[in-house]
Computed example of a mutant assay.
Amino acid sequence: MSSSAGESSKTIVLISGANQGVGFEIVKKLSEDPNFHILMGTRSLSNGQAAISSLPDGVVVEPIELDVTSDPSIAAAADVVASKYGRLDVLINNAGIGPYAFPAEASTRERFTRIFSTNVTGAACLTDAFIPLLQKSSQPRIIFVSSGVGSLTLTLDPSRAGVDAPAYKASKAAMNMLMATYATKLTEEKWRVNSCTPRLSATAFTKGVGRDPSIGAIIACRLATGEVGGTGGFWDNEGTIAW
Score class of each variant (00 low, 15 high):
Val60Ile: 14
Glu110Leu: 15
Lys28Met: 07
Ile26Ser: 14
Asn94His: 04
Arg211Cys: 00
Thr197Phe: 04
Ser46Pro: 05
Ile97Phe: 03
Arg109His: 14
Ser159Arg: 10
His37Thr: 07
Ile115Gln: 10
Val59Gln: 13
Ala77Glu: 08
Gln139Phe: 13
Gly150Leu: 01
Ala167Lys: 01
Ala18Arg: 03
Ile142Thr: 02
Pro99Trp: 12
Gly17Trp: 03
Gly21Ser: 12
Lys190Ser: 01
Arg114Val: 09
Leu133Thr: 05
Asp157Ala: 01
Ser4Glu: 13
Trp191Asn: 05
Lys185Met: 11
Pro34Asp: 06
Glu110Asp: 11
Gly96Cys: 01
Ser137Glu: 01
Leu126Met: 08
Leu200His: 01
Val120Glu: 05
Cys221Ile: 07
Lys207Ala: 15
Thr155Lys: 13
Leu30Arg: 08
Arg222Asp: 11
Val61Leu: 09
Ile241Pro: 05
Val90Phe: 01
Ser16Cys: 05
Met175Gly: 06
Lys28Arg: 09
Thr240Asn: 06
His37Met: 10
Cys125Pro: 00
Ile219Leu: 02
Ile64Thr: 00
Ala123Tyr: 02
Asn35Pro: 10
Thr121Arg: 12
Trp243Val: 13
Lys172Phe: 07
Ile143Val: 05
Thr69Ser: 15
Ser73Arg: 11
Glu105Leu: 10
Val80Arg: 11
Ser138Gly: 12
Leu134Val: 11
Asp164Lys: 15
Glu238Val: 12
Tyr168Glu: 03
Pro198Lys: 00
Arg192Val: 12
Asn93Trp: 06
Asp57Arg: 11
Tyr182Gln: 04
Gly86Met: 01
Gly239Trp: 10
Ala224Trp: 00
Leu14Tyr: 06
Gly230Val: 00
Asp164His: 12
Arg141Phe: 10
Gly148Ile: 13
Gly96Pro: 00
Pro140Tyr: 06
Ser138Met: 09
Thr155Ala: 12
Met177Phe: 10
Ala78Gly: 07
Gly226Arg: 03
Thr42Ser: 15
Pro99Asn: 00
Asp236Leu: 08
Ala101Gln: 08
Gly232Cys: 06
Ser214His: 07
Ile52Asp: 04
Ala204Pro: 07
Leu30Glu: 11
Ile143Gln: 04
Val61Asn: 07
Asn194Trp: 02
Ala174Asp: 03
Thr11Leu: 14
